[in-house]
Design a binder for these strands. Structure first.
Length: 847
RNA sequence: GGGCGCUUAGCUCAGGGGUAGAGCGCUUCCUUGACGCGGAAGAGGUCAGAGGUUCGAUUCCUCUAGCGCCCACCA
């Protein structure tokens, strides 16, 4: 191609992206063996959001590793997925098309959303398969935009390896995974109390729950003994649950209550006789030491209820309101059912928060409330997307066994290579804190359906104990549209017929199979066996407890192994005020803007200068530095390739010494990359490069022009070319565009398929030289420059004499570069003085 | 309440038992045979605080403080 007269960064992106695509530069080679493959479990970004600089940063980190591994000779399995499964997409489709999903509706094969008749602006109910079609249609647009942006960023993804988390392959993998767990008894369905969001009206898993501090009131309430005099006081922030109270609990070692254990008390207002029981989990230090057990106020209640085999009396309904009274019915016995009914009538239909206030008033009127309620701030559990506290609701859900494998899961966490290592602690603390099996069913619509139907008996009651399952060859199925073997569509919902399971899977049930989906599990065995277990999972730290944990769990349950060898955890991008950049905070910067202003190479430079696991400050200044580096590479390369004399053998001591130094740089950069420390690799390469242009190029350019004859010039030119070749390859993972551009001037093929620089070759070229010659020469030249700058004279200004004082060793090697040094510094005479403190005295002519 | 991480120049960050480092910003200078979308140089620091180990601590240990994050059963 030749060296251009005026090199520029403009237009490199379009040119090289097209070239790489046409040449298949980043195409995965499925014919290679496992040892020759580096497989990455790329995070699928959420399709209904938008990409911001945080994505740019973390995806760049992954790309650096991919490019390094590719240059080391690996064929890189670097797929891309789009996460279009789940609530964000569901809500977006509802708003965008004005529809809502009703899973009970049959699939309409002739459905046309554009022809929908919507006279009253009401959302139109459509079937789940039709709803999924709309989700796929809408997200396809986002996915195109995302791909364009990732291409611009220069990600070396193999764009023929893409998937979406709602596509057929993902649904098939999710359902297959579920059926296999079910078959082995590792997944099970059960009616049990679970955390429930009253607004979304769905069960949620522990991983989606977060604590939030809210204001509450402690109410001190008196429970009178059922027989004889006496009472027990308790404190509660949830008096509205008194009708659901089934026992009081105290610690067995708490002597204050020893005499009461085994006796009964009456619930205030409702007159239900409940026992006082003892359990280790009761904390003598909290409240009065005695607590109410309700069905269900929190997960501790569930534990007590289960372990103490207490009865159930549920008052909170699925929409978060208090149920109408049933006092007097079986299980709702009361000393005064009429009074209990009257009391609960005043609460029925109220949301818990309002019922709380009302109960407090009733308690006060009844004289059962002691003192004024005390204000407290306490942590309460919320669904991470929810607005009201979670309730514990009993419902039928699917679970995946987790708890019994806790020790094995902890072991697996320890054997995973975490980058940085301390991120492993988050996994450990999460697994140690798990309090139940993974609830994988959600009462939502857009998601992967459970491949399950239930036979209906003569009364139309589903038989949950014997689910009807499809063969794996039928997957994916939608039980709301497909029919179980041996039935006909006409039998749907009829006594003696069947119904489909209405729930969908937690999105993580799909995401946790990303290695399986990307690797075509059970569909292309050759491929899956070659890429799994994968080498790398890159991801953010906030989803260690979800995506990372569930992927480990699924891989362990299915294969007994870790899904990957390494986990690279990236930090957040913070704005200059140190707030996390996120769409909701309105402080996001669009990547496109940054690409236009600074170039993709420059943006990558900023991303690459931050290390894994560290939060990064968004810094445009750093992008300017990256741009400057890219431009410097263009110009220095052009210069280094511009000398007309013939390339010779590298014989000059300074040239050899520079190459010896470069060998050290390659060693350090390689070690850093192998240790997943890309920032250090960049730093090492960059440091060398700036010295190379400031010192080495200055020192040898006269000689390269021929000032000392052909052979001396030939040595310089050869060394320049070797060094440039190596430096470009060191920079290639970081600055793919500018390095490819320069490579194309004088080399064949793509630099991104070239070999990572080898130390051996450089050491051979250096002929056993020591880096010291280069170091001392650069030092003396720097001192000459400094003197001239301080004297405010041109760098070209002539120097009378330079006197260098140093050790014999350093003065000896200085002789090897004396001629270059005198020419570069325009120095008439160089004198040395052995033994003294190292110094350089620079004598300028008298003005 | 438990845990993890951070605290080094105005800013963003490296470093590591023995004169404290880089880039940016700032100031000054230079139109040098590639680079003004340049280049060179200068100023700038009790390495958060207190103890301890050591001949010597910014570095190792302990504690304290501040910041950030993760986890924790709502009495």
């Amino acid at each position: 191609m030749g060296v251009p007269e005026k090199p520029s960064l403009d237009g490199l992106e379009a040119k090289w992206d097209e070239w790489w695509e046409a040449a298949g530069t980043y195409r995965f080679d499925a014919t290679r063996t496992r040892e020759e493959i580096y497989a990455i479990d790329t995070p699928p970004p959420t399709a209904s959001g938008s990409l911001h600089v945080g994505h740019v940063c973390s995806y760049t980190h992954t790309d650096l590793i991919a490019r390094f591994q590719r240059m080391r000779g690996k064929t890189v399995f670097y797929p891309m997925g789009w996460d279009d499964n789940g609530l964000p997409t569901e809500r977006r489709v509802q708003n965008y098309f004005g529809v809502r999903c009703d899973p009970s509706l049959p699939h309409d094969p002739h459905f046309d959303v554009d022809a929908l008749d919507r006279p009253d602006e009401q959302a139109v109910a459509i079937s789940r398969p039709n709803f999924i079609e709309l989700c796929e249609r809408l997200t396809a647009e986002d996915e195109k935009a995302f791909e364009a942006l990732f291409r611009l960023l220069g990600l070396s993804v193999d764009w023929t390896q893409t998937y979406t988390t709602i596509d057929e392959r993902s649904r098939r993998a999710s359902q297959r995974g579920f059926l296999r767990l079910l078959d082995r008894g590792l997944a099970y369905g059960v009616e049990a109390p679970t955390m429930w969001d009253v607004d979304y009206q769905t069960a949620v898993a522990q991983a989606e729950i977060e604590d939030r501090e809210i204001d509450g009131l402690y109410h001190r309430v008196r429970f009178d003994l059922a027989e004889g005099d006496g009472s027990v006081e308790i404190e509660t922030s949830r008096p509205e649950l008194i009708p659901a109270c089934v026992a009081l609990v105290v610690n067995p070692a708490d002597e204050r209550f020893t005499a009461l254990v085994g006796r009964s008390v009456l619930t205030p207002l409702f007159g239900a006789e409940v026992p006082v029981v003892a359990h280790e989990l009761a904390d003598p230090g909290k409240g009065t030491g005695a607590a109410m057990i309700c069905t269900f106020g929190d997960l501790t209640d569930v534990t007590w209820w289960r372990e103490l085999r207490l009865p159930t009396r549920v008052v909170v309904q699925r929409d978060g309101t208090i149920a109408p009274p049933r006092w007097g019915e079986p299980g709702w016995e009361s000393r005064d059912a009429e009074a209990a009914r009257r009391a609960q009538d005043q609460l029925a239909g109220l949301p818990t928060k309002r019922a709380r206030k009302r109960v407090a008033e009733l308690l006060a009127e009844a004289g059962q409330l002691l003192g004024e309620p005390q204000a407290v701030r306490h942590a309460v559990k919320f669904y991470e997307r929810g607005e009201r506290p979670l309730e514990v609701v009993s419902s039928r859900q699917w679970f995946v066994k987790t708890i019994e494998f806790r020790e094995r899961l902890l072991e697996l966490g320890r054997s995973l290579h975490w980058h940085p290592p301390h991120m492993g602690a988050r996994y450990t603390s999460w697994v140690e804190g798990l309090n139940g099996d993974w609830c994988v069913s959600r009462q939502r619509f857009f998601g992967v359906a459970f491949p399950v139907w239930y036979a209906l008996d003569g009364d139309g009651v589903p038989d949950h104990e014997h689910p009807l399952l499809p063969g794996e060859d039928r997957l994916p199925v939608d039980p709301s549209a497909d029919v179980p073997d041996g039935f006909t569509e006409g039998q749907r919902g009829k006594p003696g017929g069947f119904v489909g399971d209405p729930d969908v899977m937690d999105t993580w049930a799909t995401s946790s199979l990303s290695p399986h989906i990307a690797g075509h599990w059970e569909e292309d065995d050759g491929l899956f066996d070659r890429v799994f277990p994968m080498d790398l999972r890159p991801q953010a730290h906030e989803i260690i407890r979800t995506w990372l944990f569930y992927t480990v769990l699924k891989s362990f349950l299915e294969h007994g192994t870790l899904p990957w060898a390494h986990a690279a955890i990236s930090g957040f991008v913070m704005d200059p005020e140190r707030k996390k950049m996120s769409k909701s905070k309105g402080n996001v910067v669009t990547p496109t803007e940054m690409f236009e202003r600074h170039s993709p190479d420059a943006v990558r430079y900023w991303a690459a200068s931050s290390r894994l696991g560290i939060d990064t400050i968004f810094d445009e200044q750093q992008m300017r530095v990256g741009r400057r580096l890219a431009i410097k590479i263009l110009n220095a390369s052009r210069f280094a390739l511009s000398f007309e004399a013939l390339e010779g053998d590298v014989t000059d001591p300074l040239d050899r010494s520079m190459l010896a130094r470069l060998a050290e740089v390659v060693r350090e950069a390689t070690a850093a990359f192998e240790d997943y420390d890309h920032a250090k690799a960049l730093d090492v390469a960059e440091r060398f490069f700036w010295g190379f242009t400031d010192d080495y190029l200055e020192l040898v350019k006269g000689r390269a022009y021929g000032s000392n004859g052909e052979q001396a010039a030939g040595s310089a030119i050869a060394a320049l070319r070797v060094a440039l070749d190596v430096v470009l390859r060191l920079f290639a993972p970081f600055l793919p565009y500018v390095t490819e551009e320069v490579w194309s001037w004088w080399r064949r093929g793509s630099i991104h398929r070239a070999a990572w620089p080898a130390i051996d070759g450089l050491e051979t070229a250096a002929g056993g030289a020591d880096p010291l010659t280069y170091e001392v020469a650069a030092w003396v030249l720097g001192e000459v420059r400094r003197t001239k700058a301080l004297a405010k004279v041109s760098l070209k200004a002539e120097v009378e004499r330079v006197i260098v004082a140093d050790t014999r060793e350093r003065l000896t090697v200085l002789a090897g570069s004396e001629r270059d040094l005198r020419e570069a510094g325009n120095v008439r005479e160089l004198v040395t003085s052995e033994g003294a403190e190292p110094s350089v005295e620079v004598l300028l002519p008298q003005a």
